[in-house]
């Protein structure tokens, strides 16, 4: 089963685009999210994020990711709404006033969180890590070791997520209540799992390091790439869209 940050093969125009334009676009969306104070711009960016899922043929995955983010967002929304004291009271919980300003700030905060996370995660799902690595080395002259470290980190996220899921299953089978509905109890139970997860991760990384050494890791140069990374019209249009979003965020 594929999860977050896994590559989803396909032949859409988003798949074919240069990895650099996809990464830069995601960063431009991030900037736009931080610059704007307009809720409609943030909602517009959310729609745009979902359109990436539609055009990339990974709409189901985008919705799954959104569903996961909404759980965190709900927690942050409640926290933010409770903490923000200034403004006109909207309603009371006991003696505690929840203000309109608090609700608006909380909503803006969670929309920012979702808008920032979605494009990067989706773009990574539409990009082969080897293509990203090649582009970073051949075009941006990032030393191969660093490019490899970046792409390996991204590649290992779903692996570790899957490991964590398996470890939780194993501990549930031994009577640990990971199947509880209580979020806080579940979160407290995760701490002891850090031991097996950390050990399995270190072992995996050690083995992977040895494997790449044995396959001539240090012999690679920036010209070794078998693919040429190049910008085409869709790449420029995507970057223009990103810049347009920032301009819009500043103006509105």
């Amino acid at each position: 089963m594929k999860g977050l940050m896994n590559y989803f093969p396909g032949d859409t125009f988003l798949h074919r685009m240069d990895p650099r334009s996809k990464i830069v676009f995601s960063l431009l969306v991030c900037i736009a999210c931080f610059v704007t104070n307009n809720i409609y711009v943030l909602l517009g960016i959310l729609v745009l994020d979902l359109l990436i899922g539609v055009f990339g043929g990974i709409f189901t995955q985008a919705l799954r990711l959104l569903k996961g983010l909404l759980k965190i967002a709900l927690f942050l929304f409640i926290l933010q709404a409770l903490v923000m004291r200034a403004g006109t009271p909207a309603f009371y919980i006991g003696k505690l006033a929840i203000t309109w300003e608090g609700l608006k700030t909380a909503l803006m905060g969670v929309l920012r969180l979702i808008d920032i996370t979605l494009p990067l995660a989706l773009m990574i799902s539409l990009t082969r890590m080897s293509d990203l690595s090649n582009a970073l080395v051949s075009r941006w002259h990032v030393p191969y070791k660093y490019a490899f470290a970046i792409t390996s980190t991204i590649r290992f996220i779903p692996v570790f997520t899957s490991d964590l899921r398996s470890i939780m299953e194993a501990q549930t089978a031994r009577g640990v209540e990971f199947d509880t509905k209580n979020f806080f109890k579940k979160a407290s139970l995760i701490v002891p799992l850090c031991v097996p997860l950390l050990i399995s991760s270190v072992k995996k990384i050690e083995t992977a390091a040895m494997a790449v050494e044995l396959r001539g890791f240090n012999l690679r140069t920036k010209d070794s790439s078998s693919k040429v990374s190049q910008f085409h019209l869709p790449d420029y249009l995507l970057l223009l869209l990103g810049i347009g979003l920032i301009v819009l965020a500043v103006l509105i």
């Binding site: 089978a173 009577g175 209540e177 199947d179 002891p192 399995s200």
Partner: peptide, 23 residues
Amino acid sequence: CKASTLAARMGYLFQNPDRQICK
């Protein structure tokens, strides 16, 4: 049934022992 409540009646060995060991 919750899986955790069945632990006393069922034992399970996973393919990879490192998934289970935590102490």
